[in-house]
Design a protein around this nucleic acid. Sequence first.
DNA 1: AAGTAAGGCAACCGCCATCGT
DNA 2: CACGATGGCGGTTGCCTTACT
Length: 305
Amino acid sequence: MEESGSQEALRKGPWKLEEDEVLLNHVKRFGPRDWSSIRSKGLLQRTGKSCRLRWVNKLRPNLKNGCKFTAEEERIVIELQAQFGNKWAKIATYLPGRTDNDVKNFWSSRQKRLARLLQNSTTPSKLQRSTRKEKPVDFDVPSMEAPKLSSASDGDASSRPMSCSSSFSADNAEAVDMFCSLPDLYRPKLLGFGQDFLQPEFNPFPITIKSDPQTNFHPLPLGSTFSSQGLLHDPNIDIFLEPLDVSQLDNEVQFPFGLQFYEPMGRCSSHDVVSENVENPESFFNEFPADILDQIELLSSSPEN
DNA sequence: AAGTAAGGCAACCGCCATCGT
DNA sequence: CACGATGGCGGTTGCCTTACT
């Protein structure tokens, strides 16, 4: 069937420069609307949907095209995804210059990495197969030692059955190491999830890292990582890991960039997003701070000897 | 140098909500 | 109220690039 008489066949695929120009001209004249009229006027052989998508994702002003997600942006996405679910358009409103497609793609990539990591951790045969990022790395992880941050249950060796030493030689030892090496993510209660995660006896640190509201908490410098900032030894780490209080953000779409997410004194949000998802393994990983993935990969790629 | 796997990204598809007639 | 057109959104696919063997 011909495309409605005089109209040429619908064009698909990558956009040409000329098409972009036509689209930009249309928007300049009529604003970002009436997408379907672009085709009906014979300006472009693209559907209105396609035009709109092109505008939203590529031609709109102030887009951060080609820029990788910053650590802060990643953190925001992770927090908001935990809060809203896969509401990419909504999440994107908190990220100036980012589109829902950007967020979606970012998340998708992240999930793939996680999936691959998990698979590696459960299929030892594949663990040996190097992947792109799994080249042997001289990754010195002194700061990833079990943090001595609290006296709460620090001395209770029984509550930490899996030391991070190399004495454990199970097939997925590397994977276990990965998680042994992780700090108490976000909140201690998060770790209530999956005692049998990876290993039946797997029992993450019962350490409770307390924040002291009296101390001068320094918010996490943007773009920093646990190890680089020595945060594993930071007594304020619990504050640092406090989930973003999205309920506040929700009221005000404006999201000040460069915002210090974790106020020194701040209201400790009672909105504990993380705990809501504790039963869900996938969600468990979703809560990981952005940098953690990189840490995990580095750890998992560490030479075994 | 060639082959391959993974990452990143752009674009399409299908569903759904809204709006105008 | 019903229906079609349109736009918005999330999921998915496919292509290109990069890194590694």
